[in-house]
């Protein structure tokens, strides 16, 4: 089991520094999680550390492809507003 970084990532290094397993690797066009090394932080922390610090909604997903930080969860911008601005589809894509 492992989390995954998708192309919404802005390469900010935050997750690299907090991962207890050094599972995040610098890569282009965006950072990646080494699925051999990632434990989803089980046994180390109550929350997956990368997802607890990542500033970008949707950048980190689980094995089902579901974002750990869904749209609106970090910015507090209401879903209706995101929809109205046409930002919802892009974030969720």
């Amino acid at each position: 089991m492992a989390l995954q970084i998708v192309d919404l990532c802005v390469n900010c290094w935050a997750c690299v520094d907090v991962c207890p397993n050094q599972a995040v690797v610098e890569d282009v066009p965006h950072f990646l999680i080494n699925e051999q090394a990632c434990t989803e932080c089980l046994g180390d922390h109550a929350e997956a550390q990368c997802a607890a610090i990542c500033p970008i909604e949707g950048a980190i997903v689980n094995e089902l492809g579901e974002p750990l930080n869904p749209p609106g969860s970090l910015t507090g911008i209401p879903l209706d507003k995101l929809r109205e601005l046409g930002l919802l589809d892009r974030e969720a894509a």
């Binding site: 802005v10 390469n11 900010c12 290094w13 935050a14 690299v16 520094d17 610090i53 500033p55 970008i56 970090l74 910015t75 507090g76």
Partner: peptide, 28 residues
Amino acid sequence: PACNIQCNYCNRKYDCANESRPGVVSEL
């Protein structure tokens, strides 16, 4: 590049107009 808080006047994807922050896409 990394940050540990979110401010409502900041979006990590773009250059920040409020503080001395060029945005993560600028030359790091």
